[in-house]
């Protein structure tokens, strides 16, 4: 066992036990054990477990972004200090001061690389489990928590005639329908890249503050918006159908999460935040309370609520005009 395998072993085990768990559960409620659809649902179950486990991280990040409103004045001061200084070293100095400020206020809008890093070994593990299925099946071995029987069952299972362990590039195991593998792979690669593209595009168009839009990173990021789908498209032809299912599902989750964030908890100072403020104003709701600053703002909130109540009574006035007309 080499170094990489030793590290991957617990992840492979965890990935396979979650999948087997879902598979057992699904067969217990009456789904056919050998069906590719049962295994597909097990893979989707795995995605749901991993993404649900990451929700606390995500919520923390959203709260931190809201907390940013509290330090807007300080941020403004910092921007004025570095106004017109566009050389890289000054930008770096500004970034440094900004980070020091976040730490002082105990809020940081960035999520750190952990949420991304933590998904990677799971993805590799799944990749290894799924691409190892054919070999393990022919030699009668188990993988991680999957028994030899389950491995063989998985190896034989297919959706629309496409085996879950087949890849577009490296061929279809005997008994599989090659056309189905091609069609399914291409459809899923398209779905996967499209959802990724839409998510990125939405973030850039709606959920970035003006400062972030003006940053020098932006041009690079815009370029990546178009390069990335190509990279994943090319990568995708190497992936087994099972991995494509995983990736497509997780991208769809990200997209849904992003829609929710843009609609309900946008980044302060972004177009989405303005849209939300307008929607709330139209409904006569108070501006969103700032998380973290709630206790201090209790009085201000009460005042705002009173103002809204007043606004509501005032809003009934136009009705009198209508009555007059009638």
């Amino acid at each position: 066992m080499d170094f990489f395998e030793t590290i991957m072993f617990p992840f492979k085990w965890l990935v396979s036990i979650i999948m087997v768990g879902f598979h057992e559960g699904l067969t217990a409620i009456g789904l056919p054990a050998a069906s590719g659809w049962t295994w597909t649902l097990s893979i989707i179950g795995l995605v749901l477990v991993i993404r649900a486990a990451l929700i606390p991280v995500f919520v923390k990040q959203i709260k931190a972004q809201r907390g940013m409103q509290l330090l807007q004045p300080d941020l403004k001061k910092l921007q004025d200090k570095y106004k017109g200084k566009t050389d890289q070293l000054s930008r770096q100095a500004m970034a440094q001061e900004q980070m020091a400020m976040y730490k002082k206020h105990g809020t940081n809008p960035f999520s750190a690389c952990l949420p991304m890093l933590i998904q990677m070994p799971f993805f590799f593990a799944l990749f290894q489990v799924l691409s190892g299925v054919s070999n393990a099946s022919s030699s009668g071995q188990g993988i991680g928590a999957m028994s030899a029987n389950q491995v063989q069952q998985f190896d034989k299972s297919s959706i629309f005639g496409a085996p879950l362990s087949a890849t577009l590039l490296h061929g279809t195991p005997p008994g599989g329908n090659e056309v189905a593998v091609w069609v399914l792979s291409i459809l899923m690669i398209l779905a996967m890249t499209a959802s990724q593209f839409i998510t990125q595009k939405q973030i850039m168009a709606k959920n970035m503050s003006e400062e972030a839009m003006a940053s020098p990173f932006m041009r690079q990021q815009k370029m990546m918006l178009y390069i990335l789908p190509i990279v994943f498209g090319v990568g995708g032809i190497n992936f087994p159908i099972g991995v494509l299912i995983y990736w497509t599902t997780t991208n769809l989750w990200t997209m849904g999460q992003q829609f929710f964030v843009i609609r309900r908890m946008p980044t302060p100072g972004s177009p989405a935040a303005k849209a939300l403020a307008e929607r709330r104003a139209a409904k006569g709701l108070p501006a969103l309370p700032i998380l973290g600053g709630k206790k201090v703002d209790a009085e201000a909130e009460a005042a705002a609520a009173a103002a809204v109540a007043q606004a509501r009574t005032q809003r009934t006035q136009p009705q009198r005009k209508n009555r007059k007309k009638k």
Partner: peptide, 14 residues
């Protein structure tokens, strides 16, 4: 790095 934009909580970034 440009794929993810800034995610790091530190200066300098990781």
């Amino acid at each position: 790095s440009p794929l993810y934009g800034q995610v790091c909580r530190f200066f300098p970034s990781c």
